[in-house]
Design a protein around this nucleic acid. Structure first.
Lengths: 109, 109
DNA sequence: TGAGTATGTGAGTATATAATCACATAGTTA
DNA sequence: TAACTATGTGATTATATACTCACATACTCA
């Protein structure tokens, strides 16, 4: 049985995973890992419409992944917690294991 | 600029995150971390319809998170890569940091 | 063989998400 | 003040996702 607290935790964890479940948002994290950036530059890096990027950023702020500050005309976003980068290490483990499996499959052909 | 390879990587990473972006699927990982289980028991643990759980499991298999084997009437699922559990450590870091921020906010009231 | 059990799937519906365009807002600078 | 720039948002549309119910499949065991 899942306790009510566990249920809440699962929902919160799922929300964070969802905030990372889009290629554009993954790209954003990758771009911001080296330091804060304005929307303009983020949009150029990820190669998407500014308004679209704006919405993706809002999703990530809502999930608690990003914070932002205004500086003149610009709005500058940064990773709220560098620990999110461990996510890529974790996912990397899964991907490596998949590639290994594919390789074994290939050899069996 | 994002290279074509990076783009592919981001898509793959997003896909894995998406497979973890639902409370039921998070619950499944939590249940399976102590060992393989059949659909029946998984459904009871997560508290959802069997057919619904079946679909969630299919999503996770597709993403490469789970593997399964048939044993008589039952189909038994297990984590394909325990490294996925690091995901919770990572997410835990983000959540802790959010709770800290909330606490600071509360003190400021 | 026939009843029973575990699982998966088709079809339908409701809801959520993503993308785009046009426009609003806010700050800048001449 | 007026033109300009960076950003966010409303409205719309297309697509994806989640869920449910009924049913098909596959295996078990009497």
């Amino acid at each position: 049985m899942i306790t009510e607290e566990k249920q809440l935790l699962f929902e919160r964890q799922a929300e964070i995973a969802k905030a990372l479940s889009h290629p554009v948002r993954i790209a954003v994290v990758n771009f911001l890992k080296d330091g804060e950036q304005c929307v303009c530059d983020i949009a150029e890096y990820v190669g998407a419409e500014r308004s679209n990027v704006s919405r993706h950023l809002a999703v990530m702020v809502n999930a608690g992944l990003l914070s932002y500050r205004k500086q003149g005309l610009k709005v500058i976003y940064e990773l709220r917690c560098p620990c999110i980068l461990e996510f890529f290490v974790c996912i990397g483990g899964v991907l490596k294991q998949q590639v290994e499996a594919d390789r074994r499959l290939l050899r069996a052909l």
